[in-house]
């Protein structure tokens, strides 16, 4: 069994679901140690114990958050050497991937991104070419660095809790890093997070400036709101809602596509959804080629009617 190092960045008061997924996967691969950046709250410490973590490593430097990734990669490299880790697991966020990238060079370790599952021998599974292939890949190096996509592992506490000891790792100085000079928090929508929502209702240019019907249907279903790039570029909805090649990749149980033509770049982000429903007034739209249930109709008729019907049935 390998020593597995899990990077947890600023967990705050409680760990995110994706962090619990990392800890659960780590345990299935070997003995897990957490490399923690940021405060260690009592509840985070309790969660680490509950998830069977053997030890917690913290950086000697406090200012890792002021720079873009290079010092975090340096910390992780030192932590990996300290624990003799054979596998390092990180989030598949843009930041997770770029820390992984630098870490890979520092450790001469193969990096695999977008991982959905890992076999006991370290073979990683992922899909490539916009979901058209599933591949198995493996690092050919002593250490592998893997970034795990959210929602592919069910978080599960360890059968027996541990009492992880905490120690400090020296962070070597890095030559040059970009400095973060300002940070603005965005206002939360109150809706489920797009990337791990069970249902996504997405609107496109066909919404013609009015996302109300999309949002109302989303709320009736407890869904997240997504959009095509045409809709986000027009400013009808925040860029964070964009689904596709240059937006989010989602694979919910249900994706409702409203007034979206289904261009290849849009499909790249949603075609692995379990069930796809499309509403479009043009019968020739490519989205109908991948829809399980397609409605040739006007979004301004169909969406409000569906919303009203759901409310009626839900009482």
């Amino acid at each position: 069994m390998a020593n597995v190092l899990v990077f947890i960045d600023n967990p705050g008061a409680s760990l995110k679901k994706s962090s619990l997924e990392l800890l659960t996967l780590a345990r299935s691969l070997g003995e897990s140690t957490v490399a923690l950046n940021g405060e260690l709250s009592d509840s985070a410490a309790a969660t680490f114990a509950e998830y069977g973590v053997a030890g917690i490593l913290r950086p000697s430097a406090q200012d890792l958050d002021e720079f873009l990734v290079a010092p975090k990669a340096a910390f992780l490299a030192a932590a990996a050497e300290n624990t003799g880790a054979g596998i390092v697991l990180l989030d598949n966020s843009p930041e997770g991937k770029e820390i992984a990238a630098r870490l890979g060079v520092r450790l001469s370790a193969g990096v695999i991104t977008d991982v959905v599952a890992v076999d006991p021998d370290g073979t990683a599974h992922k899909s490539v070419l916009a979901g058209s292939y599933t591949t198995a890949c493996k690092a050919t190096t002593a250490v592998s660095v893997l970034t795990l996509k959210a929602n592919n592992v069910t978080p599960e506490p360890a059968p027996a809790a541990t009492s992880p000891a905490t120690s400090t790792v020296d962070v070597p100085a890095v030559a040059a890093a970009a400095r973060i000079t300002a940070r603005e928090q965005k206002v939360a929508s109150g809706r489920p997070d797009l990337t791990d929502a069970r249902i996504v209702v997405a609107g496109g240019r066909g919404m013609d400036g009015d996302f109300g019907p999309v949002e109302e249907l989303a709320d009736a279903l407890g869904a997240a709101v997504g959009a095509s790039r045409a809709a986000t570029d027009a400013g009808w909805i925040s860029h964070d809602a964009q689904v596709g090649q240059t937006g989010k990749t989602v694979s919910p149980q249900l994706y409702i596509s409203a007034g979206i033509s289904g261009a290849i770049q849009q499909k790249a982000g949603m075609q692995t959804s379990k069930v796809i429903v499309a509403i479009n007034k043009d019968a020739e739209s490519p989205v109908f080629e991948i829809a399980d249930f397609g409605i040739i109709g006007d979004v301004f008729d169909v969406l409000p009617q569906a919303t009203a019907e759901i409310k009626k049935r839900k009482g």
């Binding site: 019968a283 829809a291 249930f293 397609g294 409605i295 008729d301 409000p304 919303t307 019907e309």
Partner: peptide, 12 residues
């Protein structure tokens, strides 16, 4: 592709 229907007033 799955089932495709045309709205006849009750597609919602």
């Amino acid at each position: 592709a799955g089932t495709i229907i045309t709205d006849e007033g009750d597609a919602g």
